[in-house]
Nucleic acid binder design. Structure first.
Length: 472
DNA sequence: TCCACTCACACTTTTGAAAAGA
DNA sequence: ATCTTTTCAAAAGTGTGAGTGG
């Protein structure tokens, strides 16, 4: 209806690679001849509906799922080659926001980034055919504001804006990632503001309308008792909310809703009631991001004028050693020398980075790293070399793979399968905990940012790494 | 006083084990 | 004995509103 199903971006690997790979990389130009990978966001209309109002995602201490949740489709993968799918959250900008008079306003500089964590899709690694045969859901991804979170949820700051990045890595296992090509996709309409409580009642309404778990709050719901049991003020608020709901149900079609609000902010908020529960449907036209959105959308926000564009990036990054000092502490996994270094040097990204280099060099010969150049290419079909986990222990000091995931080394990664399974998430300190990026990392990140992101945002965006610098 | 945040609550869907049936 | 379907209770996910603390 919106043409949103065409929301994809053909990734021309060769042309997107704007510079020679670092000498430390094994992958040569051939590595980029693996065809065009296409990623599409599922349910784009829903995402767009939220986006037009200003998506908010609740973050809680125990972790909260996203809604809408990230669901994508992939094509163009090599069916028999294995891939790993990752998601992380990137700050949209360097600001903290507040909800004031029915719109978001900048409330100051962003707080230092929390530990940067990456969510690994539980199916990873899986062959391209697996990823392509069905849509890929990140339903179990959870967001938290608990910087000491021990469940591997992605840590965000409340009242800050983020957007998810999807990474596809052709790799047999998590160790191979180190030498593999990352292809990164973002969807402008998936950007959101992390909040501990909904600020915009329109978002609340949308969530209630679309999230099955919130059915109980729908107007037609059966919980009349609940709605009327509270105090009069509450009742009043509920009534007003019901009016909004009714009005919406009269419109009844998200497309109409979208259309009415897609023109963006038209400066009418001055006439809006102060209370957020006094909204009218008419106000749906207004964009919550007001002036700075108009500014950023063209200058430093991935959400450009044409939201159908899926900005993509590609970067060659050494894989994460993916450790996080407090993580090691939590799980009592034998902290590697390098992890201790990383831990002790948490304030010095550069030294940490350098300390990691020997790790790379000491990978055994049969490690997939060396033939990675060939493996990445189209000739990758055929028996997959799955190096035994023991090949790496003592080299990278990783924990062993979990049962049922023989090819996966537990990089202190957390899995949505269970909080206790260190499979599903990589984590590392955020950039704010590091000095300005090492020149090498800067190369990578700048390269990545060039793909679809305006230079105005390069500074902030590019400094938010997929993995901690110290991992490199 | 304001505002971001936490918590208990009622309600919902999801999950998984046990029971029933073929 | 095996497999499939159904049932049901527990677990998990949801927004609400009162309360808390800076």
């Amino acid at each position: 209806m919106f043409g949103y199903n065409e929301s994809y971006f053909l990734l021309d690997l060769k042309s997107n690679f704007s510079g020679p790979p670092p000498s430390s990389m094994a992958a040569g130009p051939d590595a980029y001849l693996q065809g065009n990978i296409r990623m599409t966001l599922e349910d784009p209309e829903l995402w767009k509906t939220f986006h037009e109002i200003g998506t908010e995602m609740i973050i809680t201490k125990p972790g909260r799922r996203m809604f809408p949740h990230c669901k994508i489709n992939l094509s163009g993968l090599i069916p028999c080659a294995k891939y790993i799918l990752l998601v992380d959250m990137v700050p949209e900008d360097g600001f903290r926001y507040k909800w004031n008079k029915e719109k978001w306003e900048v409330a100051g500089k962003a707080e230092p980034q929390p530990p940067c964590r990456t969510y690994l899709h539980p199916d990873s690694p899986a062959p391209g055919s697996h990823w392509m045969k069905q849509s890929i859901s990140f339903l179990k991804l959870k967001l938290t504001n608990n910087t000491l979170d021990q469940h591997g949820h992605i840590i965000l700051h409340s009242m800050h804006r983020y957007h998810p990045r999807f990474h596809i890595v052709q790799a047999d296992d998590l160790f191979s990632v180190r030498w593999s090509v990352f292809q990164t996709f973002t969807f402008p309409e998936t950007s959101f503001t992390a909040v501990t409580a909904y600020q915009n009642t329109k978002i609340t309404k949308l969530k209630i309308d679309h999230n099955p778990f919130a059915k109980g709050f729908r107007d037609e719901g059966t919980n009349k008792k609940r709605r009327s049991s509270k105090n009069p003020a509450c009742l009043d608020k509920r009534t007003k909310m019901s009016d909004i709901l009714k009005k919406d149900s009269e419109e009844d079609s998200p497309p109409d809703f979208c259309q009415s609000s897609f023109d963006g902010y038209d400066g009418e908020e001055g006439d809006l009631p102060k209370r957020k529960d006094d909204e009218s449907v008419k106000e749906e036209r207004y964009s919550p991001w007001g002036a700075e959105r108009e500014q950023n959308a063209r200058t430093d926000s991935p959400a450009g004028a044409d939201t159908r564009d899926v900005y993509s990036t590609e970067q060659l990054v050494p894989a994460p050693a993916s450790y996080q000092p407090y993580r090691f502490h939590e799980y009592g996994k034998s902290p590697s020398p390098s992890s201790s270094i990383g831990s002790s040097n948490s304030g010095s990204g550069r030294s940490s980075f350098e300390s990691r280099v020997p790790d790379v060099a000491t990978v055994p010969d049969h490690d997939s790293s060396k033939p990675r150049t060939q493996e990445i290419g189209p000739s990758n079909c055929g028996p997959q070399h799955l190096p035994g986990a023991q090949d790496y222990t003592g080299v990278l000091n990783m924990t062993m793979a979990q049962a049922g995931k023989p090819g996966v080394i537990g990089h202190h990664i957390y899995s949505p399968y269970g909080a206790e399974q260190p499979l599903g998430q990589w984590s590392g300190p955020g950039p704010a905990q590091y000095p300005p990026p090492h020149h090498l990392t800067a190369d990578y990140t700048t390269q990545a940012v060039h793909h679809g992101y305006h230079h105005g945002n390069v500074a902030e965006w590019s400094q938010y790494p997929l993995f901690s610098y110290s991992c490199w």
